[in-house]
């Protein structure tokens, strides 16, 4: 029974099912269930386990044994990884501290039990290099991390250099932009509110730097305020350019009802319900957040598998690649393979 489960024929069936599952999973269509991959992988895991236990062509050959154990480990680790993973997006304003409640588009496995609440960093400024033609180059995002002396240490991350905290990886993305800092003081002396409005990603939506906000109103039905940010960033399409929030300036155009007011940093405007003050211009950075505790183990298993296969190849074939042909003039007529059976004793 176990021997039958570990047959190569079943392995081929499993591979075919996995190939179908992989083809169906191309580009992660939302209507394709995860089972098209999970079922063949589970089937192959059982097949591999049985083959390792019963097939002497595998378990008596060190290299092949290591290779198949490595494949089994990859399947198991990938499964554990999906059960414990976390994927999310984050938009964080310069000068503010990370909060797990800021994560959006979050997807996580049922066994995820990470330490999100323990993560602490403050977003600093960033720069992004652009080549002529608006081709994005390297991102340099500064983050502040608490050190052992109750202070902060600076770290620069970006692109393929993620911020890694407790196994959580924060990757900068193309998604970043500007954020006017606003203060809202309601009429009648209520408590003032401060906050930021994240304008659309820049320079991707350079032509569309607008947003809106509805102030709170005790009576309900506050008036929506529309904003448009007129930026001066030094953007050039025909030359190299650096996006730098420190050197950028912006005029905030406020539209409410039929009024249109342009505000420089530090200026205020009275609108229905209160006073809106444009304090200054700052930036926000978009991160992709990823957590998978099996990453290093997966890499180790993959390397182990390939080393096993390499060892097997070297022992079986390494020397025999050096076959030299007989000299043509001395060569006897070499018998041609008349049937497939002449290829007896096949091994690769």
């Amino acid at each position: 029974m176990i021997r039958a489960l570990g047959s190569i024929r079943l392995a081929l069936v499993g591979m075919l099912l996995l190939a179908i599952g992989a083809a169906l999973s191309y580009d992660n269509p939302v209507d394709t269930p995860v089972w098209v991959l999970v079922a063949p992988l589970a089937f192959l895991a059982v097949n591999l386990l049985a083959a390792i236990a019963t097939n002497p062509r595998i378990n008596r050959r060190g290299g092949l044994l290591v290779f198949h154990l490595g494949l089994l480990a990859i399947i198991v680790l990938a499964g554990i990884g999906r059960l414990t993973h976390l994927d999310a997006q984050l938009e964080i304003t310069e000068g503010t501290a990370f909060s797990p409640s800021d994560l959006t588009h979050m997807a996580k496995g049922p066994w995820h039990s990470g330490a999100l609440e323990q993560l602490a960093f403050v977003q600093g400024s960033f720069t992004v290099d652009y080549s002529p033609g608006m081709v994005r180059g390297l991102t340099h995002s500064t983050v502040l991390l608490p050190d052992d002396r109750q202070g902060w240490q600076t770290k620069v991350v970006g692109d393929d250099r993620p911020l890694i905290l407790e196994g959580y990886r924060f990757y900068t993305t193309f998604n970043k932009g500007f954020a006017p800092v606003l203060t809202w003081t309601p009429d009648g002396g209520g408590e003032a509110l401060s906050g930021t409005i994240h304008m659309p990603s820049y320079p991707l939506f350079e032509y569309k730097q607008d947003s809106s906000w509805t102030p709170p109103n005790e009576k309900g039905g506050g008036k929506e305020i529309k904003f448009w940010l007129r930026l001066k960033t030094g953007l050039r399409e025909d030359a190299a350019w650096v996006l730098d929030g420190k050197t950028a300036t912006g005029v905030l155009v406020v539209n409410v009802d039929d009024r249109r007011v342009e505000l420089e940093p530090g200026q205020s405007v009275h609108v229905p319900g209160g006073v809106l003050r444009y304090e200054r211009l700052t930036t926000w950075m978009g991160y992709k957040v990823f957590y998978d505790p099996t990453l290093h183990w997966l890499f180790g298993a993959a390397i182990m598998a390939v080393l096993g296969l390499g060892t097997h190849f070297w022992r079986k074939s390494g020397a025999s690649l050096q076959i030299a042909p007989a000299r043509v003039k001395d060569a006897p007529e070499v018998p041609r393979a008349s049937s497939p059976d002449t290829a007896a004793g096949r091994s690769v």
Binding site: F299, A302, V306, L309, V334, R336, T342, A343
Partner: peptide, 29 residues
């Protein structure tokens, strides 16, 4: 006509395909 038998070429070809398989695995990793 003076090339070794099909079986010899077949064995050699599959050895290179196994080598390709090893490098494909490494490439994916």
């Amino acid at each position: 006509r003076h090339v070794p038998a099909d079986a010899v070429l077949d064995a050699l070809a599959w050895r290179f395909m196994l080598l390709a398989f090893i490098f494909h695995s490494l490439m994916l990793t």
